[in-house]
Computed example of a mutant assay.
Amino acid sequence: MAINTDDLDADIARLQAAGVIVEGANEMPWGKQATFADPDGNGYVLQG
């Protein structure tokens, strides 16, 4: 699942403050993206 955000860096900071392991942000041809997983191992992509 991909989730669009207007402020990727702020959302990454909020997730990390809540104890979520976030990989990225990585520069892509269309913008930046980061990935994380929920406690069940489902993966998510944040893109901004």
Rank of each mutant, 00 (worst) to 15 (best):
P29E: 04
N42D: 10
A34Y: 01
Q16E: 13
P39S: 05
I12H: 04
Q47S: 12
T35F: 07
I3M: 13
Y44P: 01
L8R: 05
M1A: 02
A10R: 10
E23L: 11
E23P: 06
M28E: 07
E27K: 09
G31E: 00
D40G: 13
A25V: 15
G41Q: 04
V45T: 08
A25K: 05
A13F: 11
Y44H: 01
L46M: 13
F36G: 07
M28T: 12
G41T: 05
D11Y: 10
N4C: 08
W30E: 07
A17P: 03
G48I: 08
D11E: 05
Q33Y: 05
D40P: 15
N4Y: 14
K32L: 08
A25C: 08
A2N: 14
Y44D: 01
A37P: 12
I3Y: 02
G48D: 03
T35H: 05
A2K: 14
M28C: 09
N26G: 06
P29R: 10
I12F: 00
D11W: 06
N4L: 09
D7W: 04
D11A: 04
Q33I: 03
P29F: 12
N26Q: 05
D11K: 07
K32S: 09
Q16T: 12
L46C: 08
N42G: 13
T5E: 02
G24D: 04
